[in-house]
Design a protein around this nucleic acid. Sequence first.
DNA 1: TATGAATGAGGCTTCATTCAT
DNA 2: TATGAATGAAGCCTCATTCAT
Lengths: 232, 232, 232, 232
Amino acid sequence: MQTDTDVAPRLRRDAQRNRQLLIDAATEVLREQGMDASLDEIARRAGVGNATLYRRFPTREDLYEAVFANMGGMVGEAAMRAHLIDDPWTAFATYIEEITQFCAADRGLSDLMMAGMAKSPALNAVRLESERVLQELLDRAQRQGAIRPDIYLEDVTLMLCAMHRVTPAAETVAPGTWRRHLAIALDGFRHTGSTTELTAPPMTADQMFRLAEQFQPPKGPDRSAAGHREHP
Amino acid sequence: MQTDTDVAPRLRRDAQRNRQLLIDAATEVLREQGMDASLDEIARRAGVGNATLYRRFPTREDLYEAVFANMGGMVGEAAMRAHLIDDPWTAFATYIEEITQFCAADRGLSDLMMAGMAKSPALNAVRLESERVLQELLDRAQRQGAIRPDIYLEDVTLMLCAMHRVTPAAETVAPGTWRRHLAIALDGFRHTGSTTELTAPPMTADQMFRLAEQFQPPKGPDRSAAGHREHP
Amino acid sequence: MQTDTDVAPRLRRDAQRNRQLLIDAATEVLREQGMDASLDEIARRAGVGNATLYRRFPTREDLYEAVFANMGGMVGEAAMRAHLIDDPWTAFATYIEEITQFCAADRGLSDLMMAGMAKSPALNAVRLESERVLQELLDRAQRQGAIRPDIYLEDVTLMLCAMHRVTPAAETVAPGTWRRHLAIALDGFRHTGSTTELTAPPMTADQMFRLAEQFQPPKGPDRSAAGHREHP
Amino acid sequence: MQTDTDVAPRLRRDAQRNRQLLIDAATEVLREQGMDASLDEIARRAGVGNATLYRRFPTREDLYEAVFANMGGMVGEAAMRAHLIDDPWTAFATYIEEITQFCAADRGLSDLMMAGMAKSPALNAVRLESERVLQELLDRAQRQGAIRPDIYLEDVTLMLCAMHRVTPAAETVAPGTWRRHLAIALDGFRHTGSTTELTAPPMTADQMFRLAEQFQPPKGPDRSAAGHREHP
DNA sequence: TATGAATGAGGCTTCATTCAT
DNA sequence: TATGAATGAAGCCTCATTCAT
């Protein structure tokens, strides 16, 4: 399902296979249960001992990073396609639509898209990149007058965050409806004759960060002298 | 804090008191920790044995139902206030704002507002009542032309669902920002010159119900051979 | 085996029984395996679910404290008997002998006698009380000239510490030999014509404390959001 | 660091090198963590696969044996130096001091000095050799009247055993204090006017052996159906 | 041969739930 | 009736050890 043959440089064939089994199982379980999924369950689903999972991915973050390794590519491609679109509004909307389409199909992806994961460079990189793209598209659409001028990146991000927390579940029940939902939400950004005046300030980037921190996967016990001790 | 004298008709005085203690504690814990809170924690906070909780509220649903019994009142009052507002759009927006204000301050409330709780008449009743109100306000605003005509109740509900899954967390980080967020989202419903055409159909009521079922509190283990055992 | 009926104020009879079973099992396991014993093993040996152990004794320290609850009495009695002895040296030696006799019979007791257990008031209290007694007896014997004047409390304590780390094991192999061992060691404190000059300074009380900290029982994972999460 | 070219007679050059890396790493880890150190940690520190460790040293004992193979040299040199000392008491005390100095700096060495390792010829050989030397020095000091005549080799050994179980920890907290501690303890052996009469008999050599057996490194699980499994 | 990989069991901790008082 | 008590299972993590390359 995932194809990151280059990511794990030299791994024995069977290890490579197990790694893939784990990633696939994790993808599946995350899709179903979201970011709080049990690691043992993932190992079980992969048909692999739990310790194998720990060997391959010492922390939950490592596993998640691997699961979403190809997300970077997805974002990049979506960005590229969006940049080819002439109409600024359409470019903006299309980019968000593509991102959302990805998330709608995967509860885990949705969860992680906004989750803190402060420790995971890869995940943060993807998010930052996506936000960079978003900012560009937003600027362009505002310059052209399609989007109301008092909208900030964080407004868009927050709206996406909210969407992502619902679309995967909605998808299992009414596939495709998210497109309608998203179209409506996007219209809220439009620069039209009748818009509600915004009194509250937008979130700051730091507040967004702290918000993301609140959507964290479970944190296990710390690793100072824990666990197994003696086999009597 | 809660006053549901009719709900539990004949109960000894102390039982009545315990019931109330539990509801108050649950309200508090749910507000802080959301739908997944530990039942033992609730009993502890109420200063009551855990078994008492089980006796009073055999299932988690029963407890939650009681906790949100008074929400009906809140919805009713919001509805009343909204109906006093002349401008249809303002009425619509104000009602949603009041509901959201409540949810923003209470993680448990937000969780449960959309949560399945199929078994819970009370919760469903509140939801249905709220939806009835919403439908009225929506109709009115559409008749007057403030809201685009191809919007359905489910579109509004779904948007609210998404909001509720984010606002409580946002509130801890940037209080009040949800107003901005909500204003933008509501503008999406407006009937303006430039709106995106909606190709996908709205959710059906039944789909909404099945969606709500996906946001469930934790389910316990399968208990087949549990309980007290003499020490063999 | 232990008899602390007053310690746990009002406990249901079965709980009292289980508590006792746990303490007995812990005593036994600690005697055999020392302070690193597995908590699950203790529960198993007591014929009780592991969670019961946690309910009764939330931390390892709590359990250990209970196991050694009667140590205080032992120390007090030994002190009383020692104070009745006229000859200062005999009083000093006898007190230490009684303490050691207790420790020789119990590896767990020996371990804990010196172990850090910084969190356990009871254990620390016993240790401090014992040291107070020791100091008195030491002073008396030094005033009378039986013990060389450049000996400090910490010298005695350290010697005891060393003894305790060996006597329980020795006891299983050659019961009673510890008396011989102890007699020889005590003679080292005597004020005689031929003693080795002591060039190094004695340990400070603080150093003793930090030494004790090095003999710690295993530390489990921390309790921030760990363990059980969902029962899917 | 170690040089046991004779021990492993014919080994490929790289094997020889790995063997040495492992011994060095083990020495280091044992020094820091004592006898219970993790084997994986040792292999890791050696920069070598864990299976290599198993191939080179099938059992923990085998590894420990190799680690302490050179201890024979240390003992021999200490013995030599002691024999050059004219005063019998000084010779006796100096030898013990040198041995203890070694142990104080090395937790693993201390642990193993007395540990059972019944299977390990090398460790036993070192111990026996050291005891032989000790016996000689003891005899000499007793003949000259410096040490009381009713002291036996096992008395000295046992005292050393007790010291070794404390000095490494003490060393980290109050370096050098062991010298004071040791000096006091040694004085206990002296032939002076005032000594305590010894009623209990000394340990027999066999009892000492069985005592040593009680200080064992961790034993692994029972492995009956382990290993690699195809994923069914 | 050397190695990384895999494994299951074991340790700790918490939770929803039933039992006995 | 109210309550504390008991329970097993599930979660997380690590280790000694065997297997396959």
